[in-house]
Amino acid sequence: MARAHRVAGVAALFITLYTLVFLQTLQVPFIERNTVDEVLPVIPWWLLVLFGSYSLWSLGWGLFTFRDCPEAYHELLSEISEAKNDLRGKGVSVD
């Protein structure tokens, strides 16, 4: 079973529960019906906004903390010239 099937299964379960509560087939225990009716319609939008802001923060933070490594570049350049000198001495053709 692929990941897509598992994700679809979990999503189907939640959508069914949501629809049943929405159509008043299922009752939410311990919460007044009025409150449920007010909160329920905004939950999908709340999830969408939540996911959107998570994505933006995650991307932005990732971009901000993406490190540059100029020291690795300079170290590599000096190693390359060292390698070339050594290899020339051993008879390997390098430019």
């Binding site: 990941r3 994505s55 991307l59 990732g62 993406f66 490190r67 540059d68 490594c69 690795a72």
Partner: peptide, 26 residues
């Protein structure tokens, strides 16, 4: 710490975006 050399902001953004997509989906 890891890092990259020779990437501009656009390249980093594409890389991060591609990575975020794969992380979220997979």
């Amino acid at each position: 710490p890891g890092g990259v050399h020779g990437w501009d902001l656009k390249r980093k953004l594409i890389s991060r975006g591609a990575n975020f997509l794969a992380m979220t989906v997979l």
